[in-house]
Design a protein around this nucleic acid. Structure first.
Length: 282
DNA sequence: TGCCAGGAAGCTA
DNA sequence: TAGCTTCATGGC
């Protein structure tokens, strides 16, 4: 896939390795908006971009082009990854539904809070709660609101979180903010995946599945396979070898897909949730 | 009305 | 360690 960075925009060749709908609608990010003309806007931390399709190219407009080139993982060769994964007969039939997916490199802090909110919740409501957080506590950047800083989040009372409509998760968010206050996430990123995962699980509101999503979308770790309601169905339908618990399913699938686990999980999740792949006869 | 949502925490044994 | 229950809220 070809791309080039100019002063305030990135031009990306549209095609099998980059489809903005696949990338944004596959459940890895919550702060994005689709406009009537088919263009999108995306927020990540305190950064912002607009994405428009122009003939055979996507144009990503932003004053932070280097950030978004990294965010969209433009240097990674997804054709190679998909060719490797297509050796698996289930993925061979599933990948075409989300062939333009790329795993984003999003803000770790934003991913931690977002996926704590995501637990036992629905995606439209998750988006509303996160948006409320940004509007009430994030910096007004004119065209959008930044995700709040940890300093700001740690200074807010429990009532702030109760007012977001987050339900019983409010107390987790409140505790989480204090637990993360003063923590250098860049320093945490130096840990091995297993150690980083254990630390994440020690945080309020973070269990195995939420930790795996944070590792995948916030810390760019591909040796994880989040097991949720959808991917547990995927396991039971296509990969069942007797695992009963989510932990057993996770171990089995990470062993199967290794360093490509995160990619495999996202193609399977998107296919199952958006295209009824679970009903395919494979 | 009852069920479920990209689950986690708390309790029991 | 494993299994069960509870936890707000909202859409269907």
């Amino acid at each position: 896939m070809k791309y080039k960075i100019e002063k305030d925009k990135i031009i990306v060749e549209a095609g099998d390795d980059f489809d903005i709908e696949h990338i944004l609608e596959c459940g890895q990010i919550f702060r994005f908006y689709k406009f009537a003309d088919g263009s999108y806007s995306v927020c990540s931390g305190d950064k912002f971009a607009k994405i428009m399709k122009n003939n055979k190219n996507y144009v990503i407009f932003s004053k932070d082009t280097n950030y978004f080139a990294d965010f969209f993982d433009l240097k990674t060769d997804y054709s190679k990854i998909k060719n490797e994964l297509k050796k698996d007969k289930v993925l061979a039939k599933t990948i075409p539904f989300g062939k333009g997916i790329r795993i984003l490199k999003n803000s770790p802090l934003e991913m931690i809070f977002s996926f704590v909110i995501s637990a036992n919740n629905r995606i439209p409501r998750i988006k509303k709660i996160i948006e409320a957080m940004c509007e009430k506590a994030g910096e007004n950047m004119g065209e959008y609101y930044a995700f709040p800083t940890i300093e700001k989040l740690a200074s807010l009372p429990l009532n702030f979180y109760l007012g977001l409509g987050a339900g019983y998760r409010a107390k987790y968010l409140f505790k989480l903010a204090m637990e993360l206050s003063g923590v250098d996430l860049n320093e945490k990123n130096k840990l091995e995946t297993k150690e980083l995962r254990n630390w994440l699980i020690s945080l309020s509101g973070v269990g195995p599945k939420v930790a795996d999503c944070i590792l995948l979308f916030g810390f760019n770790r591909m040796d994880v396979f989040p097991i949720d309601t959808w991917t547990s169905k995927v396991y039971e339908t296509f990969y069942n070898e007797g695992a009963k618990t989510r932990e057993q399913m996770r171990e089995h699938l990470v062993k199967r897909f290794g360093i490509y686990s995160g990619y495999a999980q996202q193609y399977l999740f998107y296919g199952a949730r958006s295209y009824d792949v679970l009903k395919l006869k494979i």
